[in-house]
Amino acid sequence: MTQHPISTMSVARAIATKDLRIEWRSKVLVNQVLPFAGIVMVLFAFALDNDGILQRVAPGLVWLAVLFSSLIIVQRTFAIESADNALDAIKVAGVSSAGVFLGKAVALVVQLLLFECVLVLLSLVLYQVHLSWGGAVLLVTVSFLANIGIAAMGALYGGLGAAAKGRETLLPLLLLPAVAPVLIAATRATESAFGVSGATLGEGWPWVALLAVFGALFTFGGTLAFGVLTEE
């Protein structure tokens, strides 16, 4: 392992702060991607025009909307790097690539969390689901852990696409199959949180364990692999 002059954690903090500051100032996510996610939720309602069905499948729709939005968010987070070869500059600076990966992933977690808050609120209004206090605690835990998994895989494969310039179309093919366990676990847990399909609150918590394992495994894998994947 090469010694870097700046610690991995400082690099991660710098990258995450920078990414979030760019989003805060440019408002691209809030002005463009968030409305997209909102319209997807409305379109789901058009496609499944039945109140009973809509309520039952609401957890799955929320997480599908999160996954589709995550593709755009990940592409956006690497577009700001490849626009003026910023990723190359970071690499030339010789900072730890694990730090860059962690920074990117943390910024993605925060952005995804914002999306989930809005999408869950929308599902409460549009799909008439009910959320208890206990359900809300479960949902926050699930969202946080699911985001770690999605963000780790997204940062990893987004980095790969950004390093191979102009090949961002590869991202959905690599990312969506990889995060399928997150979709399954998060949807089942959210069913418990919403109390739909006869799921009770207690049934939701075991899925949290699966999300935690997924997140931990790929955060670890990502810190090792990111440097190799983005190498020129």
Partner: peptide, 30 residues
């Protein structure tokens, strides 16, 4: 994706090893 042969080998090697992690998790969750 293009690039040098060594680059191709490294990238695809990492993706192949990540797949080894992914598949058991996918199977387990399904």
């Amino acid at each position: 994706l293009g690039g040098s042969h060594q680059q191709r080998a490294k990238r695809s090697g990492v993706v192949a090893l990540l797949a080894v992690l992914e598949i058991p998790l996918v199977h387990f969750s399904v």
